[in-house]
Amino acid sequence: MIVRLIVFIAIFAIGWWLYRQVLAFQRTKNPSKSHSPSKTTEKDAQENMVRCEQCKIHVPRSHAIHDQEANAFCSKEHLQAFHKKP
């Protein structure tokens, strides 16, 4: 009985793997039928992150506030607090 279960699981796993391979092949064959909502590539959609000098969290570069030395901050308060430190 255990042998039958193991064989059934093995057949199911092989079938699932073959199914995924067929889907991957079709996706590479027809890239225009991608199910991503936008036409931009994933690389174009990504944005560089910068670390806030005060609290050390990462924020997108377009949302960061920079000082004259090009240090990045997540908010005006952290910019001011960083420059008030002795």
Rank of each mutant, 00 (worst) to 15 (best):
Lys84Ser: 11
Ile65Trp: 08
Asn48Gln: 10
Lys76Pro: 04
Gln54His: 07
Lys56Asn: 12
Asn71Asp: 09
Asp67Phe: 14
Gln46Leu: 12
Ser62Arg: 14
Phe12Ser: 08
Arg20Asn: 09
Arg20Thr: 03
Phe8Ser: 06
Phe8Met: 06
Lys29Phe: 03
Tyr19Ala: 01
Arg20Asp: 06
Gly15Tyr: 01
Ser38Asn: 12
His35Thr: 10
Gln26Arg: 03
Pro37Ile: 01
Pro37Cys: 00
Lys33Ala: 10
Ala10Thr: 08
Pro37Arg: 04
Phe82Arg: 08
His83Thr: 13
Thr41Ile: 05
Ala70Asp: 12
Met49Arg: 11
Pro60His: 10
Gly15Ser: 00
Cys52Pro: 02
Ile6Met: 08
Asn48Val: 05
Ile14Gly: 13
Trp16Met: 05
Gly15Gln: 01
Ser62Val: 09
Leu79Asp: 01
Lys29His: 03
Ser34Cys: 01
Gly15Pro: 02
Gln21Thr: 02
Lys84Gly: 04
Pro31Ser: 00
Glu47Ser: 04
Ile6Ala: 10
Gln54Leu: 07
Val59Ser: 15
Asp44Lys: 05
Ala45His: 02
Gln80Phe: 01
Ala10Pro: 04
Gly15Ile: 01
Gly15Cys: 01
Asn48Cys: 02
Phe12Met: 07
Gln21Ser: 07
Trp16Ser: 07
Gln26Phe: 00
Val3Leu: 13
Gln80His: 02
Thr28Cys: 04
